[in-house]
């Protein structure tokens, strides 16, 4: 899967579908995923899997989560807690149900469809006010509420889970919220 993802990123860059900044950003994320995967050892099945986060969906999710959980001077954002690489891993975690994985992926598609329908723009290209309006709108329907709640919960995992998973880097989430972890700590993902 890593190889496929890498090829996809490189191909997109070569074909001019993504600019240099996006290419570097994607490459960094790929590095982060690879690092986390390595830390996780053989737990995750890094084999073929249909429920994966495509580059397009990853870009969408990145902007959506940046809006839902924005970085501030004194509080971490999703880059610092490795949220996007963590979502890649959630999608290949055999202990996360396919049902949840489908909710995550379908929600991204449906939100982008709503954006196009309402504003003829992708979520990324919306103004802050438009983003607020569209998120507010979908949060009032069942699928939207479930989906936002779900992706926030997984974001909280990356904020407040054990850094052994490659998330909550340097315990930044725990430090921000003055949280004391329990001992013994995790030895690795699900270990």
């Amino acid at each position: 899967m890593m190889q496929n993802l890498k090829s996809e990123i490189v191909q997109s860059f070569i074909e001019g579908k993504i600019d240099r900044r996006s290419f570097l950003s994607a490459s960094f994320k790929l590095f982060a995923i690879t690092s986390i995967s390595s830390a996780l050892g053989c737990f995750y099945t890094l084999s073929q899997h249909k429920l994966v986060l495509s580059q397009e969906k990853e870009n969408s999710l990145y902007h959506i989560l940046n809006f839902l959980f924005p970085k501030e001077k004194h509080s971490p954002g999703i880059d610092e807690i490795n949220t996007i690489p963590y979502f890649h891993l959630i999608l290949i975690d055999q202990h996360v149900s396919d049902f949840d994985k489908k909710i995550i992926l379908n929600g991204i598609t449906w939100l982008e469809e709503e954006c196009l329908l309402e504003y003829q723009k992708t979520f990324f290209n919306l103004s802050l006010k438009e983003k607020e309006k569209i998120i507010n709108k979908v949060s009032k329907v069942v699928w939207g509420e479930n989906w936002i709640a779900k992706i926030l919960n997984f974001t909280f995992e990356s904020l407040l889970g054990d850094p052994a998973y490659g998330i909550n880097v340097n315990e930044i989430g725990w430090k921000w919220l003055n949280h004391k972890p329990g001992y013994p700590r995790a030895k690795g993902a699900h270990k």
Binding site: H95, G161, D162, A164, Y183, K187, K191
Partner: peptide, 11 residues
């Protein structure tokens, strides 16, 4: 056993 919330309570 560890105090790993993800492993123990969320999976």
């Amino acid at each position: 056993f560890s105090k790993d919330e993800i492993k123990t309570c969320r999976r």
